[in-house]
Nucleic acid binder design. Structure first.
Lengths: 197, 197
DNA sequence: TAACCTACCAAACACTTGTTAGGGAAGGAG
DNA sequence: CTCCTTCCCTAACAAGTGTTTGGTAGGTTA
């Protein structure tokens, strides 16, 4: 008998893949079992419910992401460098947790009403603090344009990064760092205040 | 007896609202009926199926949107003005069909495999032609930066516009035109090639 | 008045869903 | 060998799903 404690993670990975492709509600437990090569009932040896699979997928991703954000924020960089680091970190996370990111994008909005998934709203709030705070700091420091609505800018930056998960495929032409660089180039040249008026 | 030929559209509007909020698969026919103030079975007097409601919502929206795009493209504007017009038109469409846009965003990816919803893939292709063509034209004309990956730029512009549907609420602080102006300001200052190197 | 149409309800249908209970095969430990 | 744990299967369950059928209130037409 193999020990296989990573069997659990392996099942979660295939589940995440199916969830991301079909949507959580449209995905049946039997479909996951098919993709994993076992029968539907057998999944319940590893997990108590379909919902707890989703829970584990999302919280594992968010834990890692928020830890990465905290590291960036603790580095004490300037506003512009912080934004650059946040974007790069985000694309690395998309590279590693593409499926989880796609699920989060699609389902979090209506999941966060459920008590079990309250932490999704918390995560959103911590995103907002990180991004919005950095933007405001940058506006005050003169790094970013002051003539834009800050909240609109925040949503703009946040969305431009995260929607990439809907088309990004690991192993493609561009590395996460390369994509981050191009995105930053596009975003910053619009956000950074011109040195010459 | 009231004639009420718009009863159909009224039902479609509430259905679209529920679909957008909960997701298509997560939405039950009884939930729609509840919101509309009748019983589940009664919906089948107006529509043959739940799927055909979705079909009608999406195709009505796409018809109007693509017609708007065609008008813009037929105007014979320059690349930059075309992009501006496309973005503005898109935000107007988001303003009018917010629910349909949200549904399209969430569900189209996995719906377009079904034969019935092939037109979704067609629509995506026409989007790509409109946006990507304009961008390439602009690069050739010197309106947009040439040092960026065009496909990446296309996805960037496209996504930044459409994700706005996930947070936009009509009747808010900003009009569609105002949001379009701010978005364009952010996007273009990054895409437009600098007049001075 | 009688026939008719519109818009709905009440009740059921077949089917799929997530989930559970009991059992069994395969290897490791004693 | 025997016990035990791990991992899976078989078979079923109750609840909920989209959908259909027959009926009916009430206004319109003749």
């Amino acid at each position: 008998m193999r020990p296989a404690p990573d069997r659990r993670r392996q099942l979660l990975d295939t589940a995440a893949e199916v969830f991301a492709a079909q949507g959580y509600d449209a995905t049946t437990v039997r479909r996951i079992a098919d993709a994993a090569g076992l029968l539907a009932g057998s999944l319940y040896y590893h997990f108590d419910s379909k919902e707890s699979m989703l829970d584990e997928i999302l919280s594992a991703f968010l834990d890692e992401l928020l830890a990465g954000y905290d590291t960036v924020l603790a580095a004490g960089l300037g506003p512009r460098e912080t934004i650059e680091a946040l974007v790069t970190e985000s694309f690395r996370e998309i590279d590693r947790h593409r499926a989880a990111v796609a699920i989060f994008q699609k389902e979090s909005r209506h999941l966060q009403d459920q008590p079990r998934f309250e932490y999704l709203a918390d995560a959103r709030h911590r995103f907002e603090t990180a991004w919005l705070g950095t933007l405001e700091r940058g506006v005050a420091a003169g790094d970013f344009r002051a003539d834009l609505d800050v909240r609109l800018t925040y949503r703009f930056v946040r969305d431009t990064v995260w929607v990439a998960a809907s088309w990004y495929r690991p192993g493609g032409r561009h590395s996460p760092e390369e994509i981050a660089r191009q995105y930053l180039s596009m975003v910053l040249e619009g956000i950074a205040s011109r040195t010459r008026t």
